[in-house]
Every structure is written in structure tokens, then in C-alpha cells.
Design a protein around this nucleic acid. Structure first.
Lengths: 259, 259
DNA sequence: ACATGTGAAATGGTTCACAGCT
DNA sequence: AGCTGTGAACCATTTCACATGT
């Protein structure tokens, strides 16, 4: 049987062709909100979000400029990496001085597409879904929760965090009507794939999946997974590895049986 | 022996052969226990957890053997990567045939350190903490929640998911007493660092952090972060990038294929 | 025939270290 | 004098492709 190649998240797009040797003059139109997302490494994108939070906190504290060394420490990365990451945005620092906090916040927001709103739908109003719905417009505006879904008849119409719960069957219709762009799946694993399909049918472009299943989606859909069990198991691995290492005092720990 | 899997996806309850010393993996134990665990790439570890879940589901459905192609499709990766990942465990496949599901489950469990228990403490019993506490022994036993903490006086002593809530101040003492090895932080960001410090003082080795802050920890502590805002912002980035691409800037015959 | 296991190549990401600007 | 921006070295991970074993 020919397994239908399932692609999941991590859709790394080709493109690039930039980085011409010594040719440095993209002459990027500043005010141009588009034309930017050239080829920022996936890994760097995740860190930009972290820098943004740290910078926002600094701005609140009154900082106006910050050096790569300082920002890096606060974000938990080394300064070379931070500078490299910021360089993907363009050159917004001042040599000998550092970066202007406000400018950086603005540039990162623009790059991450935070200048527009992304309406969110949460599916599965159990413990987790409830927590998510009450998060109320996730990270300070920008991600308003505009639709909630569940199967439980008792929840229909009941407002959670201000939004009335609708039925799973209405996902396509409601998502399309409200222009939902991000769907959050917080259902039991058995329902996840079907919910995913309906979200896609409703025009959702991205999915944040909390259910422990590997979703199959069309390739234009971006999926990110948050998996508690996987996280714990990774930690478990490290605990085990550490315990084993402790058994040996030399390079290649050669302890014996696992306990 | 043949682990009787929990139930269906009801909770993705995987494995854990209670005490494995007697089951299908004792023979291997004296061969080369965990020495190899030293060199498994971090990225592969995360995927092993996924394979494990898929394999558990397959075992429940009665599959006894599986080919890399099939398992890869179910796990959402390509077969070459899957085989490479499994090769880090040792050679447990049969050329021309595939892998024995049970054997693989056993080997992955052993490698991830799932043959021992990892007691978990959840700090911050708000919406999220509540959801986590009720998860009840996370991935089907193996990660029993044995302590809960919060600051709210009204919660002291109140049992949540069977465990009474203690005060944050008692984190070091209680964690040490109960032998907690994994701490889960589900508090507001302002409290996170202080909670983290107390968990470390209490002897926990790993921390799973849901609070949107970069924790500072001694280097022997393993920290993993689950950050909702970051996940959403990454998705936002992709939505924006896609929107920009659509604006069609270069009629390159490049199309927009991913892959 | 068929599917694993694995060197080797390719790709992606990180760190170094220093030229270049303020 | 100080700090950014970035080629180039370096390391990690993925993919290729085929020898190997059943």
C-alpha cells in the first residue's frame, strides 16, 4: 500500500536566492509591510517571538535602547545568535550603541505579521479548552478568540469567556463567516482529525494542535503541535541519561543495567 | 509480558509495562543498556515519543509487525528519518520484514526512561493548572502527579484530581519529601522564576514551563518551555508570509511547491 | 524480492571572530 | 572604544542511495 505521504507542519519554503556574496543592498522599501519575509530560518522565527516579549517588558520599564549582549541574556540565548536573528529583519541597530527598543519591537511585530489580527477558534471546551478560551485574546490583543466549539449539548450557546459555544458540526460555517484564521484543537485525540478537517473546510489556515495525534492536512495548512506527553517523555529521557552518566566517572559512561 | 495497552485513544494512554524487568526487554538489558542513549540527537528523542504513541495504537489494533514506510507515514515523517531514528536504539528490525511492534515499544520506553516513574508536581492551580492536574497521571501512568501548589489561601488543602493543594512556600519541603522529579509551572509569569527556584531547591531535576518567561536555572536542570504566545506568533508569521507570497512578486516558474 | 541499517552528501543552524560604522 | 552585522568555520540533522541480510 502506498502510504500517502503525509506532510505535517514545518513547511519550510524554498526561495531565498538572496545572500549574494558581498552584494549587500536589498534596498528594501522600509514602509513596505510586505516584501520582507524572505528567508528567515524557522528556528529564528520562534526566537523572535521571545525577543519581542523581552523587549516589550524592557519598554515598559522605560528602556529605550538595548545592546545585543543584554537582550541576549534576558532571552536566554548568546549574543551572536541574537544578532544574527535580528539581522534577518534588516539593519536596525546602531554600531557602538545597540538597538532602539521601540524600533525593534515594531520590526519584529511586522515580521511576525502581528500588525494584523488573527481570529482564533478554540475547539473542545474541556479543561484545557476552557483555560484557552479564558486566556481571552491570547497574547495581548492580536489573537482574539472569536469562536468556540464542542460536542456537548449542555454547552451549546453557553458563553465562555464571552463567546457562546457552537457545535462541532458548525465549524465550517462559523469559521468561514467569522473569518477565523487560526484553529486551536483541544479535543480528545479521537476527535482531532475530524475537527481538523472541518477547520480546514472552514478556511482556517493554521492549526495549533493540543491533541496527541499526528494530523493529516493539505499542504497549504500550517500545523503546530503542543504535546504534553512528548514533553514529559523528553524530560524523562534526560533524567534517565543523567542517572546513567552518574554511574560512570569516565567519558563513556558504561554503567550497567538501568537501575 | 505483552503489555495490555490501556484503552483506545481515549487518552492516548501508552505503554508502561508497570515494571519492565520481567517483560520483553530483559535480555537486551545486559547487552548494552543505556550507553548508547548518550548519543541520540535531541531531535530524534522528541520523535521517538511520537513513534511510541503510534506504535502503542498499532499494538492495540493488533499489529505485530510494521515496516518503516508505514510507521513513518503514521508518524508524519519520512521513512529514512524514521529508520535513522530507530537505529539509535540498536538494530531491532528484520530486513525484508520490518519491526516487531512490541519490541520497538519496549526499546523506546527503555530509551526514554519510561521504565521508571517520574513524580510530577504542578504549580499554579488556575485554569491551566487545573487542566493539568486533572490530566491525572499524565501519559497513562509513568508520570503521576503527586503534589499541587498555589498561593491562593482558599485552595489550601482542597483536593484537585485527588491531591490536596499546598502552599508555594512549601514547595522545597514537599517536593523533597515526595521525591518529585518533574515540576510543571503553570503560574502567572511574575511568579514563575521564584517558583522555579523553589522547585530546584526541592530537588526537582526537570521543569516544564508554561509561563511566558525565560527561566534562569542552574545548568544541571533541564527546562522545556511550552509557550502559547510563541506558537501563535509563529503561525502568524506563516500566515503573513503566505499572504505576501500570494501577492506574486516574481513570476518564477518556481510555483509555490513546498517540499 | 524486500526492507533495514548506515556511510556519505546535502542541508540547516550555530558560533566564531573581526571588519566596519558610530 | 564599543557594538553591530556578517562571512566563514563549525556542528547538527536530514536525506540519499545502496550494501546487507532475511
Amino acid at each position: 500500500m502506498v502510504a500517502r505521504r503525509g506532510r505535517r507542519n514545518g513547511a519550510e519554503v524554498p526561495f531565498d536566492a538572496d545572500n549574494a556574496p558581498t552584494a549587500e543592498m536589498p534596498a528594501v522599501t522600509d514602509a513596505d509591510p510586505v516584501v520582507r519575509a524572505k528567508s528567515i530560518p524557522e528556528a529564528a522565527v520562534a526566537r523572535l517571538a521571545v525577543y519581542l516579549r523581552v523587549l516589550s517588558a524592557m519598554a515598559e520599564q522605560g528602556s529605550t535602547t538595548v545592546a545585543s549582549e543584554e537582550l541576549a541574556a534576558a532571552a536566554g540565548v548568546n549574543s551572536a545568535k541574537l544578532r544574527k536573528d535580528l539581522s534577518y529583519l534588516g539593519s536596525y541597530g546602531t554600531r557602538g550603541v545597540g538597538y532602539d527598543v521601540q524600533v525593534l519591537v515594531g520590526q519584529i511585530e511586522r515580521t511576525l505579521g502581528l500588525t494584523r489580527q488573527h481570529k482564533v477558534a478554540v475547539v473542545g471546551i474541556g479543561n484545557l479548552g476552557h483555560a484557552l478560551a479564558n486566556y481571552g485574546g491570547f497574547p495581548g490583543r492580536g489573537f482574539p478568540v472569536e469562536a468556540l466549539f464542542d460536542v456537548d449539548a449542555d454547552l451549546m450557546g453557553v458563553p465562555v469567556g464571552g463567546i457562546p459555544v457552537s457545535h462541532l458540526d458548525d465549524i465550517p460555517k462559523v469559521c468561514a463567516e467569522r473569518g477565523i484564521s487560526i484553529g486551536v484543537i483541544a479535543t480528545p485525540p479521537t476527535a482531532a482529525q475530524s475537527v481538523c478537517d472541518r477547520l480546514v473546510a472552514g478556511g482556517v489556515q493554521c492549526i495549533l494542535n493540543f491533541a496527541p495525534v499526528v494530523l493529516q492536512v493539505p499542504e497549504h495548512i500550517e500545523v503546530r503541535k503542543v504535546d504534553l506527553a512528548v514533553e514529559l517523555q523528553i524530560l524523562s529521557f534526560h533524567v534517565a541519561r543523567r542517572a546513567d552518566e552518574t554511574k560512570g566517572s569516565h567519558p563513556v559512561g558504561n554503567g550497567m543495567v538501568v537501575r
